[in-house]
Design a protein around this nucleic acid. Structure first.
Lengths: 229, 229
DNA sequence: ATAAGCTTATGTGTCGACAATAATATTTGC
DNA sequence: GCAAATATTATTGTCGACACATAAGCTTAT
């Protein structure tokens, strides 16, 4: 089980239909059960979930705020479909934000948090040795690592934006293309170097390494999928 | 008139009540007409605007997504009230994001955009000479400058996040405290250096200068209001 | 007099129905 | 046969009313 999934969100008990719908639809979109680009029919979904349209519409409006759906007045809502360009744009944001998060993590992470991060890294290493770049590592494991560092920044606004908004889009994209961080060895080495910098409390280096890490992933994606958008 | 206000938003014709309410409430919150921390009563607002609660609730849900209101189930919605800590947290995000935006602007801004930016700077200079750090420059002029550079990044995701979400929070805070960037001379010099770097197409330098600029503003705020939160 | 429990009331959450808009299908004219 | 205009249909936007939860006020017992 991933560390990303049982997040603050999922743990909450949804005391209202609207909340429940929001999280169910969010998961459905991320996992591709609601296909990217597909239309969201209010009557159909309302029937399917056995609820009225009012709470459903509010849930959709929240998903709109999270950029998981787009809606046009009097036309309806569609699940977003990320183009390559958009993924690259998001990657620039990630580079900036996670670079900053990593710098702050080097400064503010507790020793316990650093220990937990190192443990996570060791798990990934085992996993990698066993099954060279297999599902766990590729799909969620990588995000677990980033998730952990972002938490270490102790900056709630940063945590919220990255973990509760941007990562959903990235996960959605990864589920869709089931292609992912296809350079496990390099990635692992880079992760290791980042943790070292954090442990040494070298914020400058930690930020620089994280930015290179994300930038490299972006360039890798750009060249692999550059032709067929 | 500021360049920030007549934004993409305001220009749109709102063909639906929900949209109209969303933008009206957004403006009211930013300008403090709906006081920070105050409760949002659905029946009261619905009466005031002469509409039903359904579109009002959808508008509120969107404002929730923009972090302009917070809501608790079965209790209601309140306008957010930013603490100093939160403003500082946001400032770190700005430093990262606008630093990146500035780097991209140095790379992608057209010559026309650079020209427009320089013109904006000259207007600010005149304004500053006339009335040392007066309302225009302090309140919106500064954001105009940043707005312009972010646009120049040509990264839509970045533009959307900064201009349509984060800047609203910053503007709201500025309206509330009517205290603002209280170092016009320094700020102007820094703006000038940033534009020079962009004009020279030096992305590294442009990013570095923008980050220092925002970081300095943050430290300035922290020390001025550090005692009374 | 105070605290606990009950009652009331205000407000949020949800529903079903109606109105208005846009997309589709049909008809009409050339 | 095709294009434009019209009619139709399905879906979205909005409304008023009801159900339910929380909070406030009142009663009662210690």
């Amino acid at each position: 089980m991933s560390l990303v999934s049982p997040q603050t969100n999922e743990a909450k008990l949804h005391r209202t239909i609207s909340d429940s719908l929001f999280y169910q639809l969010q998961t459905a979109i991320i996992k591709g059960e609601l296909a990217a680009g597909s239309k969201i029919s209010e009557p159909e979904l309302a029937r399917k979930f056995g609820v009225s349209r009012a709470p459903l519409r509010e849930a959709i409006r929240r998903l709109e705020g999270q950029k998981l759906v787009e809606r046009k007045a009097h036309v309806g809502a569609r699940v977003v479909s990320l183009s390559l360009e958009e993924l690259v744009e998001i990657s620039f944001m990630r580079e900036a934000l996670e670079g900053m998060a990593c710098r702050l993590a080097a400064q503010y992470m507790t020793d316990e948090e650093v220990f937990k991060l190192k443990y996570l890294l060791s798990v990934h290493e085992k996993n990698q040795d066993l099954q060279e770049g297999q599902a766990y590592y590729q799909k969620e494991g990588d995000l677990d690592f980033h998730f952990c560092i972002v938490q270490g920044s102790h900056n709630n606004k940063l945590i919220n934006l990255l973990c509760d908004e941007l990562y959903h889009l990235i996960r959605m994209y990864r589920y869709q293309f089931s292609a992912d961080s296809p350079r496990p060895k390099h990635a692992f080495d880079e992760h290791h170097a980042i943790v070292d910098a954090i442990e040494k409390r070298d914020g400058d280096l930690a930020e620089q390494l994280m930015r290179k890490h994300i930038s490299a992933a972006r360039q890798n994606i750009e060249q692999r999928y550059g032709d067929n958008p």
